[in-house]
Design a binder for these strands. Structure first.
Length: 552
RNA sequence: GCACCCGUAGCUCAGCUGGAUAGAGCGUUGGCUUGCGGAGCCAAAGGUCGUGAGUUCGAAUCUCGCCGGGUGUACCA
């Protein structure tokens, strides 16, 4: 519908002024019609003529069967009203398959084995999943992947503390940790290891040596020594814990890229490109000279010959490229590594420009709890993923006096998703579960309510081609859905969906307040609208991976 | 020091490829009320869009300076 009108405007411009233009259609205030365009204002500048006069001429010559009338307003806007019939027809529009045939990779969450999942992981898991959904709904073949450090200093710190706790390298002692305790038990060990690393020289030396031993496990394919048994068992515990978490959230990864896999790839690639002059030696390390591009210079291989995070990331990116040859790769991380990522990508651009061109790095801010409540674990101020979910459950318990996982999860997800990604998020549990206001549960309830209406009335054949004012407003709003999805896909910004769904629910509630549906003489058309409304709510929430129950 | 991000109503945020009176929610104040799920609806109050310039017919939106906050800046991730 939208493109049809855009074409009609483009034709009129061509005929009248012999100018090729791609008109931009916006959805204005309802009083200004269904669509509006400012082409006349743009043309006015180009042609040096009064935009209002241009608008008048254009307005008279835009021809499309879908249009009921056009009007010139303000400095030269052309406002366009669709016929009721075509507005109704637009309810059946499908989401544009703008990414059909494309392969997309979405990498998000990226937790480190042996460590606890914090609020940032929860956030990127939720948003990443929604973004992957957007790519999927636009027709792309989407691969969800995850990255994490199963080797490195943090693992060595954990391993040191684990061995202390077990009274030596006694893998059999691990059996004493029950399965439900494992995740907490591991994160405790990391905290202990991290503490001694800072305070105790002997322990630090021991940890450094453990770090090497962990890398050696991979080189020697050791799965059977006592040390190896401890490592592999605990590593698996971590992955079990992650998978359980993702299952709870309703997201699923096709593949994990552990650092143990990407490190050798990165090392190899960086060494190859060192010969070609992309990277260079400096103070015994291998660096990329970012300063030539107004970026930082960063170390990719340290002076001991070990790959840094930079090289591991090169390995990761190359592995994804080899595995998928993607048209689009989306990486979602915190915004603290934005400068870092620019350097890594700039270096790769020197030898795989197409890969970098197809890569999009999206970043988010910190997740904080409203009211400044310190949910600090014993070390530092990390807000854990579970703390946040617990806070939602507690808040929900308080208002509804019962727990409902679909509602709590919907509340958290929506609270994260409704905000444009980029800046810090202040999460307010009470507000998120609240049944009034712009919240997930509000929309879930709105959907359940619509379903309840539909359950009471049979949908008939709706033949009406004219609409009453409130019906028209609702229809107009529902018909915006596919355009909003297009925009969200285009920008990879799920919050557009949230904003829209909330406005839609408000529009519906406004309609429903004054207009009877069941047992009204306009029942058939109204039921059709309620059905479309419920479908859009369900589909929209679905794009956000939020459940839309029929009853609450 | 330099670089990047952020600064819109009391609070939390939309709006940012420049366009018509800057919009929501929460909170505050007032109204609707035996309802097809009132978990709703209507209304009011509340804004120098951090600040000062510039570009433009037109700036919350683009450019520059300044102020405030955050992050990053060579062998951590």
């Amino acid at each position: 519908m939208k493109t049809e009108i855009e074409q009609a405007i483009a034709r009129a411009c061509q005929d009248l002024f012999d100018i090729k233009i791609e008109p931009v259609l916006t959805r204005p205030d309802e009083q200004f019609g269904d669509y509006a365009t400012n082409v006349a204002l743009q043309l006015g500048q180009k042609l040096g003529q009064n935009p209002r006069i241009i608008a008048e001429k254009l307005s008279a010559s835009i021809k499309s069967p879908a249009i009921k009338k056009t009007e010139v307003a303000g400095p030269g806007f052309i406002n366009i009203w669709l016929s009721d019939e075509s507005l109704l027809k637009s309810l059946d529009q499908k989401i544009a398959q703008s990414l059909k045939g494309q392969v997309a990779v979405a990498e998000y969450s990226d937790p480190n084995p042996f460590k606890v999942l914090h609020a940032g992981h929860l956030y990127t898991s939720v948003v990443g999943d929604a973004i992957a959904n957007l790519l999927e709904t636009a027709g792309a073949e989407v691969h969800r992947v995850n990255f994490g450090g199963d080797v490195g200093l943090h693992v060595a710190k954990s391993m040191w503390a684990i061995i202390q706790k077990l009274g030596g390298e006694n893998p059999n002692e691990l059996a004493k940790v029950s399965s439900i305790e494992r995740a907490d038990w591991l994160s405790q060990r990391y905290v202990e290891g991290n503490d001694v690393y800072e305070d105790n020289d002997d322990a630090r030396r021991a940890i450094v040596s453990i770090n090497k031993r962990v890398y050696d496990l991979f080189d020697s394919h050791d799965k059977t020594s006592d040390f190896a048994k401890i490592y592999w068992t605990c590593r698996q515990w971590s992955y079990d814990y992650f998978n359980e978490f993702y299952e709870q959230l309703g997201t699923k990864f096709e593949k994990y890229y552990p650092e143990s896999e990407t490190a050798p790839i990165g090392l190899k690639v960086v060494k190859q490109q060192l010969k070609r002059g992309v990277y260079k030696q400096s103070d015994g390390a291998v660096v990329f000279d970012g300063e030539r591009y107004d970026l930082h210079t960063r170390v990719f291989i340290n002076s001991e010959g070990l790959p840094t995070y930079e090289a591991k990331d090169v390995g990761l990116i190359m592995a994804k490229w080899q595995d998928y040859h993607f048209d689009k790769s989306v990486v979602i991380t915190g915004n603290d590594i934005v400068e870092y990522m620019k350097v890594v990508l700039k270096s790769i651009e020197q030898f795989e420009p197409e890969l970098v061109q197809n890569t999009i790095h999206l970043t988010h801010g910190m997740i904080k709890l409203a009211g400044g409540t310190k949910m600090s674990s014993r070390k530092g101020n990390v807000l854990k993923a579970q703390d946040l979910l617990d806070a939602a459950a507690k808040a929900n318990q308080k208002v509804r006096e019962q727990s409902d996982e679909a509602v709590e999860l919907g509340a958290v997800k929506y609270a994260f998703l409704k905000q444009r990604m980029g800046a810090d998020i202040i999460y307010d549990p009470d507000e998120s579960v609240s049944l009034q206001g712009n919240s997930g549960p509000y929309l879930q309830y709105a959907h359940a309510r619509a379903c309840s209406i539909l359950a009471k009335a049979k949908a008939g054949e709706a033949k009406a081609t004219d609409l009453q004012a409130d019906e028209r407003s609702l229809t107009r709003k529902i018909s915006e859905f596919t355009e909003v999805v297009d925009k969200a896909v285009d920008e990879l910004m799920p919050h557009h969906i949230c904003t829209y769904l909330y406005e839609l629910a408000q529009t519906f509630n406004h309609f429903y307040e004054k207009n009877r549906v069941i047992d009204d003489k306009r029942q058939t058309i109204r039921i059709k609208l309620v059905k479309s409304y419920a479908d859009v709510l369900k589909n929209g929430l679905g794009l956000l991976s939020i459940n839309a129950p029929e009853k609450m």
